[in-house]
Design a protein around this nucleic acid. Structure first.
Lengths: 145, 145
DNA sequence: GTAATTGCAAATTATTTGCATTGCC
DNA sequence: GGCAATGCAAATAATTTGCAATTAC
């Protein structure tokens, strides 16, 4: 399996775009952080490594990474877009506590299969999906009682 | 079953908030449109009925409607928040064509059940969920061929 | 060499907020 | 009558874009 970096490099050259130190740095920084970073957060981490990188470059690179399919944008309804690596990682969805914001990665084969089936019933070829489950986590429920 | 208007009125009085002609008009306008309206779109429809209503009031009212559980915010990743009535309507998710933007409402009991089960396995009480399936619709697939 | 990329700052877009005035309960 | 709601305009917040200078291929 090709490395993330290799896939990104191929994607760029396919589109006649260029690999640059900034793009390398941004991708590498994203890879080092498994949290769900926002563009802003990623920008500040990138800046720690190279002060000269601009905010816009982070946005532009994230857009490229999403287009290439390497990165997924997430929407936890907290007002900003968060990102996570999707290549090489197992696919998963998110279970979020409405009270404390705790965020658990989940996966369920039954649901995954049924999604494909459901799309097919409507004649769609399913490419991807997003599923967010919102509830109250055990800790928060306990506090409440 | 109480009408949407009644539920909203109760919600407001519970919170010591007031029913106003603007709020009534905004809710009514939203009820007349089953599409997935953005705040902007709703604003322009409301304005056709009463020119004097302000944009901010639409935003403020939508926020209240969401808090009351009568309305659900949707994220189709087109950069803005869309809204739909959720009270009295059957719950459903969305199947979206990545090419033409076509948007189909879907429901699958197997998935719904499994979601509750999955949350339970993690100790969560499931309150709600969002599921978006993205793919290519039959029409767009045909065009391609 | 040349077209793509960068950093910066200014521009956009969606949404929120402050405030003086108005209006519901 | 008093506190909440309104409209307006200005303020935010996140993201995008124009541009002159730089750099990858």
């Amino acid at each position: 399996m090709k490395s993330v970096q290799e896939v990104f490099a191929s994607y760029l050259s396919d589109k006649n775009l260029k690999m640059t130190p900034q793009r390398r740095l941004i991708l590498d920084t994203l890879l080092r952080h498994s949290e769900h970073l926002s563009s802003e957060e990623l920008y500040s981490k990138v800046k720690k490594r190279d002060k000269s990188v601009g905010q816009a470059t982070v946005y532009r690179t994230l857009k490229l990474l999403c287009e290439s399919g390497l990165v997924e944008p997430l929407d936890f309804a907290d007002g900003l877009t968060r990102y996570e690596m999707s290549y090489g990682e197992d696919h998963h969805d998110h279970l979020i506590c409405e009270r404390c914001g705790k965020n658990i990665e989940i996966y369920d084969a039954t649901i995954e299969k049924q999604q494909i089936q459901l799309a097919k019933e409507h004649g769609f070829t399913l490419l991807r999906h997003k599923m967010y489950l919102y509830g109250i986590c055990p800790d928060c429920r306990r506090e409440n009682a």
